[in-house]
């Protein structure tokens, strides 16, 4: 067999289960404030770059709260971001598309949302906007599905203009971003558990 073949050292193998448990435990204790603190700048830049690439004006990371009853936005961009971040909004996990993605664990892209009476209107009503299209991707880190990465096209009011849409390619781009963010979060948490970070 050519190339480098890495075999885990016996001491590390013995410790790996403990590390894994510790990672899960910390993941279970993350709340909005602590998540915001550990979210690496590289993860934020990755997400913002992807939003720009696919033309999404607004996007967010949602984290399930400790009760499991709500998804809470913990990072966002777009001109309305300040209106729903920092505890100003939470989405019940039995309502709406984002919660559906959290339930199924499957990524989802949807267009023409505003035409549909089943769309959860909670956030649209709060912001005074109309969601035209949405992508929602599961965010699995620290050994569990813990949140959602989403982006939307919004309009300020219903118009007769052709609605903006997302494509399957856009979905794939955001899936890649979500997977990258998850790995960066895991790496950040592991570094903290091992004491590899100063802070």
């Amino acid at each position: 067999m050519s190339g480098l073949s890495i075999s885990p050292g016996s001491e590390l193998t013995a410790a790996s289960q403990h590390l894994r448990s510790e990672l899960s435990s910390i993941g279970d204790r993350l709340d909005s404030e602590s998540f915001t603190r550990i979210l690496p700048p590289l993860a934020k830049n990755t997400l913002l770059g992807t939003f720009r690439k696919i033309g999404a004006e607004h996007g967010a990371i949602w984290l399930v709260d400790r009760t499991g009853d709500n998804l809470v936005p913990v990072f966002g961009c777009g001109k309305h971001a300040d209106e729903f971040l920092n505890g100003k909004f939470k989405l019940p996990t039995n309502q709406g598309l984002i919660s559906m993605v959290f339930a199924t664990g499957q990524p989802f892209c949807e267009n023409n949302i505003h035409q549909n009476p089943g769309h959860s209107p909670l956030l649209d009503t709060k912001l005074g906007v109309c969601t035209e299209a949405m992508i929602a991707i599961p965010l699995t880190f620290a050994n569990s599905l813990r949140g959602i990465v989403s982006c939307v096209h919004l309009s300020e009011e219903h118009t007769e203009q052709e609605p903006k849409i997302f494509s399957g390619v856009d979905l794939g781009d955001l899936e890649l971003a979500s997977a990258t963010i998850a790995r960066l979060l895991d790496l950040t948490l592991i570094e903290q558990i091992l004491g590899w970070q100063d802070g």
């Binding site: 199924t104 499957q106 990524p107 989802f108 267009n111 023409n112 949302i113 035409q115 549909n116 979905l171």
Partner: peptide, 21 residues
């Protein structure tokens, strides 16, 4: 195919959806 232009949805409506689901 993982795309459906008018997938059945709540309240008798339909949606354009994409996903392996």
């Amino acid at each position: 195919l993982g795309e459906e232009k008018k997938a059945a949805w709540l309240e008798g409506g339909s949606r354009s959806v994409i996903g392996s689901s």
